[in-house]
């Protein structure tokens, strides 16, 4: 079955993961972290949307499973954000292969399965955590006086730091605009089981 999404996923994998293109991405810290890794996760996500069954939100287990899946993706991406493992992926092709596989299979794929199963509160939680983690990484890369990665130059670190803060700002705005100014009219009747307004 060759769908539009599978083609895009395959294209992304081809661009991001196949040497020598992979090495080109990895030659720069910014390309490595902000382009190659997101492409790999996105490729996994697109593949996941092809295989994941649609959620049955009536079942509570589905929601908990969704949380577990998104948590798995978070751990996987966090691991590859540790500077020493970025370095290791550059230094060793074997580590790099593991990086590519885990980002596709343990981050992108579970995200595709888990995200539709998350309720709005869990999504908000993930979103908010992503913002603060981007701020943390941004501050880390921007203010750390020494090189964090042996494979990269210190000036690239500062660029990455600014980019991370930019991402935090973008995530913040992207979250805030629909929440504050969404066009939805809301539900007309105030119904709630916990506390009903007496007439």
């Amino acid at each position: 079955m060759l769908s539009y999404r599978s083609l895009v996923a395959a294209g992304l994998l081809l661009i991001a993961a196949v040497p020598p293109l992979a090495w080109w991405w990895e030659a720069s810290l910014v390309r490595h972290m902000l382009m190659q890794i997101p492409m790999l996760v996105l490729a996994g996500f697109l593949l996941g949307t092809l295989v994941a069954p649609s959620p049955d939100l009536g079942v509570r287990e589905e929601r908990a499973g969704g949380i577990a899946a998104v948590l798995l993706a978070t751990f996987c991406v966090t691991f590859w954000m540790i500077p020493r493992w970025l370095d290791a992926a550059v230094a060793s092709h074997r580590v790099d292969a593991i990086k590519i596989m885990t980002l596709v299979l343990l981050a992108g794929l579970p995200l595709a399965w888990g995200w539709p199963r998350l309720g709005p509160v869990a999504r908000g939680f993930v979103w908010v955590q992503a913002i603060s983690m981007a701020i943390v990484l941004g501050l880390l890369y921007l203010t750390f006086p020494n090189r964090l990665c042996n494979s990269y130059l210190v000036n690239e670190q500062a660029i990455l730091g600014i980019a991370m803060l930019g991402i935090a700002g973008f995530l913040g705005l992207a979250g805030a605009v629909p929440v504050l100014f969404g066009a939805n009219n809301g539900s007309p009747a105030p119904r709630h089981p916990g506390a009903r307004v007496d007439p």
Partner: peptide, 24 residues
Amino acid sequence: GAGLLLVALDFGRALIARYGSLGR
């Protein structure tokens, strides 16, 4: 803090469900 955030997000979810957006 995570606990407080969860409640705040639930407030936000419920307010948006009822009024459409936090601005409203």
